[in-house]
Design a protein around this nucleic acid. Structure first.
Lengths: 259, 259
DNA sequence: TATGTGGTTCCATTATGTGAAACTTAGTTT
DNA sequence: AAACTAAGTTTCACATAATGGAACCACATA
């Protein structure tokens, strides 16, 4: 579960994950309980992180939460790092055209991270979702990415899957998943057949640079009450076109050679 | 400029800021140029951060960007840490009622960080803005917070102001600022009189817990073409009411005592 | 006043980070 | 093709900075 922990920095950063895992303000002792580090060491980590602004300490309640510096950094990350910025116009266009929810995702440590989510309907809900994580093996975007990664990376990612049975349709082993991945690679798109959440389906396509690197995926998601696995097939051309355009754009989006 | 750098962790984290500052994918040598660390040390930091997912390395171009792990963490931060989550319903309500842009901000290291921004008009632009930073001394939210901090914190924050003249109306010294802060504290609301950006004005109120701690600010922002410094006075009651409600809510929002 | 629990500090030990310098590519010039 | 250059990577002896057991403090509750 814990990364092999490289160096002091690694250990300190892992504390951030611990805090994140709680999802609420957390006492030092609670952290200590779930931690492998001895008291004094953990204490120092928390101290350091706090006056670095990565954690914030509420003296009134004696609790820690993730710090706002993270929000600041993430904003920069979101803007510079990735897909999201480059893809925005295309995603918006697609959202308006098909009038369904669009998800844009990248992979990290075998997990899917949503870097953008546009809801067709609700005006406000949009933001709160960026940064959410989901398992790769049972989501459309996840499978689309897995199917198109380099074999080494895929193997590593597959190691990290947990195969929880979220719904009756969820894959339960690497074997069945691998079979589908082959088929997805051939077909060009992946489907979420209510594998992560009952009633939610999606059609997803990988985003590939012209150099052939898979850098993310985009999906059109809907509910079984609005669409069916058959009807969402209709989105295929628009989805693939959009994914392709984003891939192109991402390729050219190298930083302007300043020298 | 650099924080007093506590420990190895501090140094490593400062590298993240460096990368963020560029706002685009960055070469190792570029980082080295702007860094105080010797080559080998910086190299190790970058290595560590990279395989921690805090940076990401594009082997094709040999550049580094901020990693997605930050986005993941920031999501958690945004949800658990702060204001934003608690304040959401109130902010939305206010946004709908006054039909102007609402900003929600917190303070970090003398800077304003926007933790939520709701645009009255544009349906999409909302997200991209969370995490943005702005100077405290020339924004409505900034002054509202400064005016209501504890003296020690305020002094520290004032040290960190740069007093750039963004517009003709921008404060240029601590003295003039302090005078206004007194008046703001008395009045209860702060105004941005085109001090940060010409044509943009706002009315802001601090968010204070029942324990008396100022934890952020909320503002209604508009353009001089839509509103005037006089007309936005009309928002005062709604703004104050909302700020007060959020303050109350934040006070009670201690984590459920689990033990 | 005792007893316990969560939080903070000490300090001798040693593991870890340090950085000058050497090396390895890859790209450019003579 | 050889000679140069610049960017990135590895090495290694050294000293700083992290470590963690244990003692200590503050504040509850009995």
């Amino acid at each position: 579960m814990n990364k092999p922990t490289d160096g002091t920095v690694g250990k300190a950063l892992s504390v951030l994950d611990e805090v994140a895992k709680f999802g609420r303000p957390v006492r030092f002792s609670e952290l200590l309980a779930g931690s492998t580090h001895p008291k004094a060491s953990l204490y120092r980590f928390v101290q350091t992180l706090t006056n670095q602004g990565m954690l914030s300490h509420d003296p009134e309640t004696g609790t820690y939460t993730l710090g706002i510096r993270l929000v600041k950094l993430a904003h920069a990350a979101w803007k510079q790092a990735s897909l999201a910025t480059v893809a925005r116009p295309f995603v918006e266009a697609l959202s308006l055209k098909v009038n369904e929810n669009i998800h844009l995702a990248q992979m990290d440590a075998g997990q899917i991270i949503f870097v953008d989510k546009l809801k067709a309907s609700d005006r406000f809900e949009t933001m709160a979702q960026t940064g959410m994580v989901a398992p790769a093996f049972c989501t459309g975007v996840g499978k689309a990415i897995l199917a198109n990664m380099t074999p080494e990376r895929r193997d590593r990612a597959l190691q990290q899957q947990a195969y929880l049975a979220y719904t009756p349709n969820t894959h339960s082993s690497t074997e069945s998943l691998l079979a589908e991945l082959d088929q997805i690679r051939e077909d060009g798109v992946a489907f979420d057949r209510e594998e992560h959440e009952t009633g939610i389906i999606s059609i997803a396509a990988p985003i590939v640079t012209q150099g052939g690197r898979t850098i993310g995926a985009i999906s059109i998601a809907s509910s079984t009450s609005r669409q069916s696995l058959t009807s969402i097939q209709a989105f295929r051309p628009d989805l693939l076109a959009t994914a392709h355009r984003i891939g192109e754009e991402a390729t050219n989006w190298q930083f302007p050679t300043v020298t």
